[in-house]
Amino acid sequence: MLRKILAVDDSALIHQMYKLFLSRYKNCKLISAMNGLEALDKLAQEEGIDLILLDINMPVMNGLEFLQRLQKESAYQAIPVIIISTEGKEEDTIRGLKMGAKGYVKKPFQASELHGLIEKITAAG
């Protein structure tokens, strides 16, 4: 039961697409952050975030740094993270996975692909 999803990406377009893609999850609140720092703020403000969709390439604080900070907080460690990857940045994706992200999906992706991954990851607990 997804109640809150935190999407972290520096592009407003991607956030709009998340809004569309994730509309199928009724009663689920979608929270957006434009970079890692903002994401940390949102985590502190909003309780009960069930899933994080994470872009790597962002200004101010990138995804990997954010992940590292995330791992340090016991409260946030358990939140599943899906890395939103791009071509040419496979190294970063792998590092993110090693840092504890549960999965990834490459841009450009279809909504169904994202849904499939989310379901697998959240079902797994």
Binding site: S85, E90, T93, I94, L97, G100, A101, K102, G103, Y104, V105, K106, F109, E113, G116, L117, K120, I121
Partner: peptide, 8 residues
């Protein structure tokens, strides 16, 4: 090369 999506 990575597949288009995957689990850790």
């Amino acid at each position: 090369a990575l597949p288009s999506s995957g689990l850790a």
